[in-house]
Amino acid sequence: MAEIVFEELVAAHRRELLLHCYRLLGSLSDAEDVLQETLVAAWRGLDTFQGRASVRTWLYRIATNRCLNALRDRGRRIPPEPEPPFKPPEPSRRGDVPWLQPYPDTLLEQVPDAAPGPEARYTASEAVELAFVAALQRLPPRQAAVLVLCDVLGYPLGEAAPMLGTTPTAVKGLLQRARGSLDRHRGEPPAPGTARERRLVRRFAEAFSADDVDALVGLLTDDAWLAMPPAPHEYHGAAAIAAFLRASAAWRAGRRLRLRPTRANGQPAFVCRLGGAVERPAGLIVLTLHGDRLRGITRFLDDAPLRYFERPHGDGGEGVV
Rank of each mutant, 00 (worst) to 15 (best):
F49R: 03
V55S: 03
L46D: 01
R44N: 08
W43A: 15
Q36A: 15
L24R: 01
Q50N: 11
T48P: 09
A53D: 12
T64I: 02
D33L: 14
T48F: 12
N69Y: 08
L25F: 04
R61C: 09
V55P: 13
L35A: 04
D33S: 14
F49C: 09
W43E: 13
A31Y: 04
V34F: 11
S27I: 02
G26A: 00
L24P: 08
N69Q: 15
E32K: 11
I62F: 10
H20Q: 09
Y60N: 09
A42N: 00
S29Q: 11
L24E: 07
S27P: 04
L59T: 04
G45S: 14
T64Q: 10
V34W: 08
N69M: 00
L25Y: 04
A53G: 13
R23F: 09
A70F: 13
G51M: 01
R61L: 07
Y60S: 01
C67F: 07
F49E: 07
S54R: 08
R56L: 12
A31R: 02
L59W: 09
A63D: 08
Q36W: 10
W58S: 00
H20A: 01
C67V: 12
S29C: 09
G45W: 10
R23I: 08
D30C: 00
D47F: 11
F49Q: 05
Y22F: 15
R23G: 13
L39K: 06
R56T: 05
L35W: 07
R56D: 08
D30L: 14
E37K: 12
V34N: 03
C67M: 06
L24F: 10
R66P: 12
L59V: 02
Q50V: 06
S27V: 02
A53V: 15
A70G: 06
G26M: 03
T38A: 03
